Amino acid sequence: MVQRGSKVRILRPESYWFQDVGTVASVDQSGIKYPVIVRFEKVNYSGINTNNFAEDELVEVEA
C-alpha cells in the first residue's frame, strides 16, 4: 500500500514516465480505477508533471 509522500517507480509501459521515480501526491479511497496521483520532476510533452496510476502499476522504492 503506497501512501502520500512515498517514492514510487512506474511500471506502466505506455506511460511517459515508465521506469521513472515520482512522489505520491495523494491516494483516493473512493474506489476509482486509478486512485494514486504521482508527481514527477520532469514534465511530459504537454507540460504536465502529474498523472494517475493504479496501485499495481507502482512499486515503492522509498517510504
Rank of each mutant, 00 (worst) to 15 (best):
D56G: 06
K33M: 10
M1T: 14
W17Q: 00
F40A: 00
F40Q: 00
Y16H: 05
E57S: 02
E60S: 10
T50Q: 12
V24L: 01
L58D: 04
V2R: 02
V2A: 04
Q3S: 11
R4H: 07
P13A: 12
K33P: 14
V21H: 03
Q3Y: 06
R12Q: 06
I37C: 15
E60F: 11
A25F: 11
S15T: 02
G47N: 05
F53M: 01
E57D: 06
F18M: 01
K42T: 14
R4V: 15
V27G: 02
R9S: 06
T23F: 07
Q19G: 14
I32T: 13
M1E: 08
I32C: 12
V43T: 12
N51C: 15
M1F: 13
V59E: 15
E55G: 06
V43Y: 15
Q3F: 06
D20Y: 09
V24G: 01
V21S: 01
R9W: 05
Y16S: 02
A54Y: 06
A63Y: 11
S26A: 13
T23G: 02
G31I: 11
Q3E: 08
T23L: 08
G5H: 02
Q19K: 10
K42S: 12
I37R: 14
I48N: 12
N51F: 11
G31W: 07
A63Q: 12
E62N: 11
Q19C: 13
I48Y: 11
E41G: 06
S6V: 09
Q29P: 13
R9M: 11
F18R: 01
Y45Q: 15
K42D: 06
R12H: 03
W17E: 00
P35L: 11
N44I: 03
N52D: 07
I10T: 02
Y45W: 13
K33Q: 11
K42N: 10
A54L: 04
Y34C: 09
N51L: 06
I10R: 04
E41Y: 06
I48A: 13
G47W: 05
D20S: 10
Y16W: 07
D28V: 08
S46L: 15
V8L: 00
V8S: 00
S15A: 04
A54S: 10
F18Q: 01
S6D: 10
S30Y: 06
N49D: 11
A63L: 11
Y45D: 15
E57P: 03
V61C: 08
N49G: 06
R39W: 13
V61D: 04
V27Q: 01
N51I: 07
E62S: 11
V27N: 02
G31Y: 09
K42V: 07
S6R: 08
Q3G: 08
D56L: 06
V8C: 08
V27S: 04
P13I: 13
R4C: 13
R9H: 06
M1I: 11
V61S: 03
N52F: 08
V24Y: 04
D56C: 12
G47C: 08
A25P: 01
I10C: 10
L11T: 07
W17M: 01
R39T: 11
P13K: 13
R9Q: 10
S30E: 06
N52Y: 09
Y16K: 02
T50P: 01
V2S: 03
S26V: 06
V36H: 00
Y45P: 15
E62K: 11
T23H: 05
I37D: 02
F18L: 01
M1C: 14
T23M: 09
W17Y: 02
Y34W: 10
K7R: 13
Q3H: 11
I48R: 10
A54K: 09
V43H: 12
P13F: 10
G47V: 02
F40S: 01
V24F: 07
G47Y: 05
N44R: 02
E14F: 08
E62Y: 11
R39G: 02
L58R: 01
V8W: 02
E55F: 15
Y34S: 03
D56V: 07
Y16D: 05
E60P: 12
D56K: 06
S26L: 10
R39S: 09
A63F: 12
I37Q: 14
I48D: 13
P13H: 08
V21A: 01
S30K: 06
Q19M: 15
Y45M: 14
G31R: 07
M1W: 15
A25T: 14
V36Y: 14
E41K: 08
G22W: 09
I32G: 14
E60R: 11
D28H: 05
V59M: 13
T23Y: 08
F53L: 00
Y45V: 12
G31A: 11
K7P: 03
M1Y: 11
K42C: 11
V8R: 01
V38A: 00
E57F: 01
T23E: 11
I48F: 11
T23K: 04
N44V: 05
A25V: 15
V21W: 03
E57Y: 05
K42W: 08
S26W: 14
E57L: 01
R39C: 14
N51A: 15
A63S: 13
A54M: 07
D28W: 04
E60I: 15
E60M: 14
V8F: 01
V59S: 09
K7D: 05
A54E: 06
S15R: 00
S26H: 14
S26M: 12
E14V: 05
K42A: 07
N44G: 06
G31L: 11
R9Y: 08
I37M: 15
S6E: 04
E62H: 12
A54P: 00
I37L: 15
N52A: 15
Q3L: 08
E62Q: 12
E62D: 12
V8H: 03
I32N: 10
N44Q: 07
F40T: 00
Y16R: 01
R9C: 13
G31N: 15
S15F: 05
E14I: 06
D56R: 07
N44S: 09
D28P: 03
N52R: 13
E57V: 03
D56S: 12
F18A: 02
G22P: 04
D28T: 06
G31K: 09
N44C: 10
W17N: 01
E41Q: 09
V59I: 12
I37K: 15
E62L: 10
V59F: 08
K33I: 07
E62G: 13
K7A: 05
S6M: 14
K7H: 08
E62V: 11
E55I: 14
G31Q: 10
E14P: 01
E14G: 13
V27P: 00
I37E: 15
V36D: 00
P13W: 09
E14C: 12
V2G: 03
R12E: 01
D20A: 10
S26T: 07
V43E: 10
R9I: 10
G5S: 01
N49E: 03
V27W: 07
N51W: 15
A54C: 07
L58Y: 03
Q29D: 12
F18D: 01
E60C: 14
